[in-house]
């Protein structure tokens, strides 16, 4: 069994003025993830190390962290790939740190709510709606967002201006706008059209690179720049 050094950013709101690093040697096997490394530390070395995790199979979105400077889900990042280390773990960039690796997600949750991420129906049908696989394909990839916030940690525009609605929320906004069952686009365009809507984006594009689920938030945001532009100019032609 090999050993690898894991260094973690530590911050305790009750006692620390600012964060510091602490490292531990962690024995690991080839099938061990970074998350399991952190769990090893918590179970055996220091029970006060704080991080979120839950499903450990890359679907719940809890365990995101910066691993050697890159936003990753720690459950699907393996220590063997980082050997010989050291592995540097920090909380997701651009978010306030609550404690150690746990960041404050409240801002995102508010933004998610602001984009009205639910079907706003025209009229409810009898039985199910008809939606062909082609119609579904128009929004499906955006519905795969697990809200893990890696894209926000990748987005410097969010870091520079936290009023920016941000990649995941805008991708979910687009997901509903592109859904054939939805009739709420006009309401959501109000968010899209603002300075902190899609116009906060300069297409750095890193959000789409780091998404662990193959969602392309940069695409959703930038297609909505076109939507917003159309909305801006064509509003004069609508009654």
């Amino acid at each position: 069994m090999n050993t690898i050094t894991i260094e973690c950013l530590r911050y305790h709101p009750e006692s620390d003025a600012e964060p510091r690093f602490q490292s531990w040697p962690v024995p690991f096997t080839d099938d061990m993830s970074v998350l399991q490394g952190l769990q090893y530390i918590k179970d055996h070395l220091d029970g006060s190390l704080t991080f979120r995790w839950s499903c450990r199979m890359a679907i719940c979105g809890s365990c995101g962290a910066m691993v050697n400077g890159v936003p990753r889900l720690t459950c699907e990042t393996f220590l063997r790939d980082l050997y010989p280390g050291p592995v540097r773990i920090e909380p997701l960039n651009h978010f306030p740190i609550v404690r150690d690796l746990a960041i404050d997600q409240a801002d995102f949750l508010g933004k998610l709510q602001s984009v009205k991420p639910y079907i706003i129906p025209d009229a409810e049908p009898q039985g199910t709606y008809l939606q062909t696989p082609e119609q579904m394909e128009r929004y499906y990839q955006y519905s795969k967002c697990i809200n893990c916030l890696l894209c926000y940690a990748a987005c410097p525009q969010y870091g520079l201006n936290d009023r920016f609605t941000g990649p995941a929320a805008l991708a979910l906004l687009h997901r509903y706008n592109a859904d054939s069952r939805d009739a709420g686009k006009a309401e959501r365009m109000e968010v899209v059209n603002t300075e902190d809507g899609v116009w906060g984006c300069t297409l750095v594009g890193y959000c789409s690179e780091v998404c662990p689920k193959g969602v392309d938030p940069a695409r959703a945001v930038n297609q909505n720049k076109i939507e917003s532009t159309k909305d801006y100019f064509f509003r004069f032609f609508r009654k």
Partner: peptide
Amino acid sequence: MKTYIRPMSGWWKRNPFYLWYM
């Protein structure tokens, strides 16, 4: 709730992806 917000200064140096962007 007390939180710590890390500074953004020099962010573009933190990742090659950002350097290419700049």
